[in-house]
Design a protein around this nucleic acid. Structure first.
Length: 414
DNA sequence: TCTGGGGTCCTAGGACCC
DNA sequence: TCTGGGGTCCTAGGACCC
């Protein structure tokens, strides 16, 4: 049996944990750039705030109901996530951490599920302060379904018999299924399929034709036959991305180069932290697709490096050159990003026969960069092309403190 | 005026190779 | 007038996830 444990309203719960006076009050967390709502406490949901609502469209509701607003604080959420996962790993010897706020656990030989599972839930809340819900079923897809249904029935739901599963899928709305997004739902709607049970009754071939091999897997999972295995060891990453929206539009190539410099620097840092180098560097630019009156431009280009690299100077150089080629005058850019692919372990450096490797000089530079920035704070030593004013930088006006990661932000108890 | 970021997997088509 | 088969690599786009 699989268990899916998921933190309730995770970001909102994490923020409220250090501001207990907000218990029982509506809380929302905004995306980067304070753009849209990405987490809501139960009270905020009751106020009519929906997932993904742009902040500027719900400003009236926020005021009317005195909703507490937070910018996203990923350092805090990342740390709280680690604590929750650590607690879960005490109960599940085989744990598959699926995202920042959920994990699949394997319940192999456990017999008294109905009494065992609630104990897991209570211990996580007690030891981390983060409330979780747990759904248990024979497949991952059904465990996800059970987890969703559990939120309305005390936070635990165990589907351990044919009868319980059939009853559950009969009332479960098809658009809430794991793996069903907007496009698939449209198709189902046209066919009059409204529940998971109605979908499950379609022939296997139909799934394969309309939803590729993923649909076929879903079909088996809905009938209780596992098709998606537990992944205890995360596969090696295929790509690493750094992308951000700008605070305002960028219309000048020099300013774009500043932003791209910062993103490529961050990317190089991430690669080094993971002990990887990349062979391809992709750069992309976006305009604001919500503005029909603006000319749209979504250019992208992938550059192949001669030698796999994770050096800041290498990646910044390529990224700035590529972005300059992609840039078009008279266009208002909203966002840019860099993606590293063709990732290879740092230790397996493949040299190129026609170009000399520098004998590790760049690695030395990178090491010094990382050491100084670790000791004196991120950005202490950086590329000059990053610029000084950085007016394009993210907006986060409602940022909470680093309660669990910064000495100066630790809460004092009188 | 203001609408996130970081991923995965799958499919299809074109260029190129022998 | 007639022009293959099998493979890889790369790019792009679509769909989905949290």
């Amino acid at each position: 049996m699989f268990a899916l444990c998921d933190c309730n309203n995770f970001y909102a719960s994490a923020e409220r944990l250090f501001r207990p006076e907000l218990n029982g009050r509506p809380v929302v967390v905004l995306s980067n750039n304070d753009g849209c709502v990405i987490a809501r406490s139960e009270e905020a949901k009751a106020c009519g705030i929906k997932m993904g609502d742009p902040e500027f469209l719900v400003r009236d509701l926020i005021k009317k109901f005195a909703i507490q607003v937070f910018s996203s604080n990923y350092v805090l959420y990342g740390d709280m996530s680690e604590r929750v996962m650590h607690q879960l790993s005490r109960w599940f010897p085989r744990l598959d951490v699926y995202s920042i706020d959920e994990a699949f656990g394997w319940l192999g030989g456990v017999r008294e599920l109905e009494s065992y599972v609630p104990r897991i839930r209570e211990s996580v809340v007690r030891n981390t302060g983060i409330p979780v819900s747990i759904g248990v079923a024979p497949t991952k897809t059904l465990a996800k379904l059970a987890n969703k249904m559990s939120k309305k029935s005390g936070g635990v739901l165990v589907l351990d018999s044919e009868e319980k599963i059939t009853a559950a899928v009969r009332e479960f709305p098809v658009h809430e299924l794991w793996g069903v997004g907007r496009q698939h739902y449209k198709k189902f709607e046209a066919l009059g399929i409204r529940t998971a049970a109605e979908l499950r009754d379609m022939p296997e071939m139909w799934f394969k034709q309309h939803m590729t091999i993923m649909g076929q897997r879903m079909w088996n999972e809905l009938w209780g036959r596992p098709a998606i295995p537990l992944e205890q060891v995360r596969e090696v990453k295929k790509g690493i991305t750094v992308s951000r929206s700008f605070r305002n539009y960028i219309e000048q190539p020099e300013i774009l180069a500043e932003a791209v410099t910062l993103y490529a620097s961050r990317l190089a840092e991430k690669l080094r932290r993971e002990k990887l180098r990349c062979l391809y560097l992709q750069v992309f630019l976006y305009t604001n697709k919500n503005r029909e009156d603006h000319p749209q431009h979504f250019p992208s280009h992938t550059h192949k490096l001669l030698i796999a690299s994770n050096s800041t100077t290498d990646l910044v150089g390529v990224a700035v050159r590529v972005s300059a080629k992609l840039f078009r005058h008279g266009v208002k850019y909203r966002k840019a990003g860099v993606i590293a692919t063709g990732l290879v372990p740092e230790s397996e450096l493949q040299l190129n026969a026609f170009f000399d490797h520098d004998g590790g000089k760049k690695d030395t530079v990178s090491a010094v960069l990382d050491k100084l920035n670790l000791a004196f704070g991120r950005g202490t030593l950086r590329m000059a092309s990053e610029g000084y004013e950085k007016k394009w930088r993210l907006k986060h006006e409602y940022l909470s403190k680093g309660y669990t990661t910064r000495w100066s932000d630790i809460i004092k108890v009188k």
